[in-house]
């Protein structure tokens, strides 16, 4: 028991080691990302404000992530609902295909999409990134929404119909409010994944880099690294905030439907 606890704590240190380094170098007054540290500065953060290419890439990423989140959540609602509520032929195969991107190496997804877009003569750009991101985010949305839809007692919807509601009315008044927390966390998670996704964006971005693609280009220039660290710090803080929000929504949803908490995402 004690041995396990110590191991768990060491493991947490292992998990958090890179993230803890991030702010250290972001505030370090030295151009080299190495020890020893040189003193405290915030100049890397203020430098962030002046880089136009960075701002453009952030805008691109936000655009891609917002649209991705909406579409993958919509597709996720369809799939999760169908999976939880209905029996239909080839269910396992269909669901398997939709969930496949979860385990497929991303590079395969990226090159296969690239080949299709190039062969069809599409101009690759933000829209092609969105198409790829929706593909890989939908399984995550489904995984999150599945638990929301499965927690829904089917007789609750039947009760609403029994009391005079139409199918559509039941969906609006009963189903939707009860799965809303799941929808919100699906939106947040898909948004976060899309914001952070690199490989697909790298292959499909054309002339409009997303934030990770821009970051990648900066990693080659040692003098840009402290700024990257500052940017990374901000990103980490933001994604932790989004995650806490998503988790809070999930728990709120559980509480509201009177369910027991059985653990985190996935």
């Amino acid at each position: 028991m004690n041995g396990l606890r110590i191991y768990a704590l060491i493991y947490l240190v292992f998990l958090y080691a890179p993230i803890i380094l991030l702010p250290i170098f972001a505030f370090n007054d030295g151009t080299v990302i190495a020890f020893p540290l040189q003193g405290v500065t915030t100049k890397w953060f203020s430098e962030l404000m002046t880089v136009n290419a960075l701002h453009d890439s952030v805008k691109n990423s936000l655009y891609v992530a917002v649209i991705t989140a909406i579409f993958s959540t919509l597709l996720g609602i369809c799939a999760a609902r169908a999976q939880a509520r209905y029996r239909f032929p080839a269910k396992k195969g269909i669901v398997g295909l939709i969930m496949l991107p979860l385990v497929l190496p991303e590079i395969i997804v990226a090159v296969s999409l690239l080949i299709v877009f190039l062969s069809l003569g599409f101009n690759i750009g933000l829209w092609t990134i969105i198409l790829g991101h929706v593909l890989i985010c939908t399984p995550f949305s489904i995984a999150i929404l599945n638990s929301s839809f499965q927690n829904l007692d089917p007789s609750i919807e039947e009760a609403a119909q029994d009391l005079g509601e139409t199918r559509f009315g039941t969906f609006l008044k009963i189903t939707l409010p009860l799965v809303m927390p799941g929808i919100v966390s699906s939106l947040l998670i898909a948004f976060t994944i899309s914001m952070d996704e690199f490989i697909i964006a790298f292959f499909l971005s054309g002339t409009e880099p997303t934030l990770p693609v821009y970051l990648w280009s900066q990693l080659r220039f040692p003098q840009r690294l402290p700024v990257v660290m500052a940017l990374g710090t901000i990103l980490v803080v933001l994604s932790i905030l989004i995650l806490i929000l998503a988790e809070a929504m999930r728990r709120y949803g559980l509480r509201r439907s009177g369910m027991q908490d059985k653990g985190g995402f996935l």
Binding site: C78, A82, I98, L100, P101, V134
Partner: peptide
Amino acid sequence: GLTLISPPLLYAVLML
């Protein structure tokens, strides 16, 4: 069920 799952299925077929 099939109607409901067809949008994500169609998407997976086209894009995957």
